[in-house]
């Protein structure tokens, strides 16, 4: 166990834990756009920056990204000191210049009192903040269907060769975890389209509701050892069935 002080309060943490994990557990609200529990910390957005110091630092302090900073004994952390807020404001100002049309960015910036960027706005910009949660999650899922492409100004998230991604199964993990909802997908009758790839959806054999894509079901049954027939019934019907089965068991127990 490690003891640290956060905003004047003494808090315990596990050795090796990242500061942001502790902040989240303590319900301290620090913005963090490139952080996701499912993937390694990345340090791309810089918004989770906090001020740290120690008793013997002679009044000096340092600014670190809390998502990437392991807890230390005796650490004194301020998450909203005037200097931290100022730093965060500048970062949000820059974000706003690049993504002026993103509702999420605008909201976050407004929370810090930034309503208009003081930089030149990127006119042909999009809402991708390059946090790479999508590509990292896709890797975690085991598909490796998309990646970042290029670098510097031209960097973007794209499927290989800018073509329909052969390894995508339409799991939607990228789109649903995108902090700015940049990745588009559409449902159309029995089909889901994402990254220009069209997937047939499974249909529940009981209630007719559409569930996951066929490719995703096939992948899960092959690599996660779940019988394919499991995916022919939707979650809700599975649960209804479970209730029925439980009722059956109870009545047998009563009879016995």
């Amino acid at each position: 166990m490690v003891n640290l002080t956060i905003n004047g309060r003494i808090v315990q943490a596990k050795e090796g834990e990242m500061l942001l994990t502790v902040l989240r557990r303590e319900k301290i609200d620090v913005p963090a756009l490139c952080h996701h529990e499912a993937v390694e910390p990345f340090g791309a957005c810089r918004l989770c920056t906090v001020e740290i110091t120690k008793e013997d630092w002679n009044g000096y302090s340092n600014y670190v990204t809390s998502c990437l900073y392991p807890v230390e004994e005796g650490l004194i952390v301020s998450t909203h000191s005037p200097k931290v807020n100022e730093l965060r404001k500048t970062i949000l100002d820059l974000f706003l210049a690049r993504h002026p049309n993103s509702p999420e960015i605008r909201q976050l910036a407004a929370d810090y009192g930034v309503f208009k960027t003081s930089y030149e706005t990127v006119v042909d910009g999009n809402n991708c903040i390059l946090c790479a949660i999508c590509t990292r999650i896709c890797d975690t899922m085991g598909f490796h269907a998309i990646s970042t492409v290029g670098r510097g100004h031209g960097k973007e998230v794209a499927p290989p060769l800018h073509q329909v991604p052969p390894d995508c199964v339409g799991c939607l993990a990228c789109a649903l975890n995108c902090p700015t909802h940049y990745i588009e997908y559409t449902f159309d009758n029995n089909y889901l389209t994402i990254w220009d790839k069209k997937f047939e959806l499974m249909v529940c054999s009981r209630c007719g509701k559409k569930t996951i894509t066929k490719e995703f079901a096939e992948y899960l049954s092959k690599h996660r050892d779940i019988p394919f027939s499991y995916f022919e019934i939707c979650d809700e019907c599975h649960r209804k069935e479970l209730a029925a089965t439980m009722g059956q068991i109870t009545s047998w127990e009563r009879e016995a």
Binding site: H144, S147, P160
Partner: peptide, 22 residues
């Protein structure tokens, strides 16, 4: 060639493309 490289080295095509464009 990129496709063949991905297959031969057993690296996802997306990673090959990412490096190749970097």
């Amino acid at each position: 060639a990129l496709q063949a490289t991905a297959k031969t080295l057993d690296v996802p095509l997306s990673k090959v493309f990412s490096v190749a464009t970097f």
